[in-house]
Simulated scan of single mutants.
Amino acid sequence: MSTTEDTLRDFKEWHELRTATVSAPYGPLALTGTHWLADHPDGTLPGLPGHWSDDGDELVLTAAADDGIALDGRPFTGTARLTPDPGPVTAARLGVGERRLVVLRREGLWAVRDFDPDAAARGDFIGIDVSTYDPAFAVEGRFTPYEQDRTVRVGNADGVERGLGLGGELAFTLAGKEHTLQVSVEGDGSLWAVFADGTSGASSYRFRFLRPAAPDEQGRTRVDFNRSLLPPCAFADHFICPFPPPGNTLTAEIAAGERNLSSRRHV
């Protein structure tokens, strides 16, 4: 099999896996709510049983038997002191029937996310519009770390401004023109960029994510916009995705990668 055939096969498999992941029972389409405790000082969260309160470094849940809450897979009554769930949704400690309740904390504020496999968005989902693979959008890049990590304040999809950590700049050339993106560095060394481009809000979603592999010792990594990702907030309004930081709106038209959700059927 030729290198081109290998590339196209890998791209097809990537897209199929991505589609299966977002449409999984506890994928992003299943998120039906993100409830911030600060918005509900009485301790009652919309659509969720139990009483919730902020106790500094812990979230306190008090539940009665008829609340139907499970903790670590077992029916729960009484009071539990909780910390953020670090793993996948399926590993969340709390549940109500088939729903999973994920505890999170952002900048000192507590929230509970409600994932429901019966969410209407899962039933309406057809697929993701993705462009045909174009090798012109897969180029070599060079990562230059900052001397010290930076945090910039950016708007989020829920209308709140939050800090976005940045670890360096990723430089690359498209169609003979040089570009840079400010990127975050993940725990495994891989990179994460939030970017917009000349197609954003027109033929593609208003911004997208890019996740290049960890750079080598010379800072080299592959910048493949064919694998641009829709952010979670494209699938559910209850995610708090960050908008692109300053300088991450490219003048180029990135007609590659995931562009939008496919049209949804109406029932």
Rank of each mutant, 00 (worst) to 15 (best):
P86A: 11
T151D: 06
F76W: 05
G95M: 08
R208D: 03
S204G: 08
V22C: 04
H51F: 15
F137V: 11
G219H: 07
T132L: 03
E169I: 10
R211P: 00
E98D: 15
L230S: 06
I126G: 09
L94E: 12
V152K: 13
P41E: 06
D57E: 15
I69E: 05
A256P: 08
T144F: 04
V194S: 05
T251S: 11
P75W: 06
Y205L: 02
F243A: 15
A119G: 06
Q218K: 06
D237C: 01
L174Y: 05
T180N: 05
L59D: 08
D116Y: 01
P244Y: 04
D149V: 15
T144K: 05
R259T: 08
H266G: 07
V102L: 03
G108P: 04
P86N: 09
Q148P: 02
D118I: 06
G27L: 03
E253L: 03
V130T: 15
S228E: 01
R208A: 02
E169C: 08
R99A: 13
W52E: 02
F115D: 04
V112D: 01
V89H: 03
N226C: 09
T77L: 05
N156A: 13
F235S: 07
D72E: 12
R105S: 13
F239S: 06
A202Q: 09
I240Y: 06
A64H: 10
R81A: 14
H15V: 10
L37Q: 12
H266K: 13
G97L: 05
A24K: 07
A193I: 04
R222N: 11
S53M: 02
K177W: 03
Y26P: 09
V130A: 11
T180S: 15
R153E: 15
T77G: 04
S204N: 08
A252D: 06
Q182I: 00
T90F: 00
E258F: 05
L37K: 11
L37I: 11
A119S: 13
D42E: 08
D66F: 11
R100L: 00
R81P: 01
E16W: 03
A256T: 11
I240Q: 14
R81K: 12
A120Y: 03
L29K: 05
G68K: 08
R105Q: 15
G163H: 09
V183S: 05
L45I: 13
L59R: 08
T173E: 12
L31T: 13
H15P: 00
S228T: 14
L61C: 13
H266W: 11
F125S: 08
L109S: 14
F225Y: 08
F137P: 02
S131M: 11
A136P: 00
P212C: 11
